[in-house]
């Protein structure tokens, strides 16, 4: 029963996010607005109830299952991307590489004070 109550809270925040998106025409999806509202709510109330924690854990542990139907579609519409795979692969590899290197370099410069077990002196 408690998982069901947690699920109800998640669905209510989803509904709230979706309504906000439609009312204020925000370019952010209802699910993400719901995520932000729930985070805010947790910060204000200062704790996570067992019911929400349980329902959230149950859903997050099967995220892969939840994205499967959407992912499967890619195979059936791959005709749409004929001739674009090279662009996609290069962009993915180079873009990812650049963003990781930027972050690492910045962190090395800025984050001498990150709390760590391992030290940072080279």
């Amino acid at each position: 029963m408690s998982i069901l109550r947690g699920f109800l809270i998640l669905v209510l925040f989803f509904l709230l996010g979706e309504s906000l998106r439609l009312v204020f025409l925000v370019p952010i999806s209802g699910g993400i607005l719901g995520l932000m509202l729930l985070t805010l709510y947790l910060m204000v109330t200062g704790g996570v109830g067992n019911a929400v924690a349980g329902a959230s854990q149950a859903l997050i542990s099967v995220l892969i299952l939840l994205i499967m139907p959407g992912l499967t579609e890619i195979f059936f519409i791959s005709g749409k991307f004929t001739g674009q795979w090279l662009a996609v692969s290069v962009s993915l590899l180079v873009g990812t590489f650049l963003s990781v290197v930027t972050t690492l370099v910045l962190l090395n410069v800025l984050a001498r004070k990150l709390p760590s077990g391992s030290s940072n002196h080279e």
């Binding site: 998640l10 989803f14 699910g31 729930l38 929400v52 329902a55 997050i60």
Partner: peptide, 14 residues
């Protein structure tokens, strides 16, 4: 269920 699961990410985020 992706919708409620997105909202659920609030818990680890918090």
């Amino acid at each position: 269920l992706l919708g409620p699961a997105t909202v659920a990410l609030a818990i680890p985020l918090y």
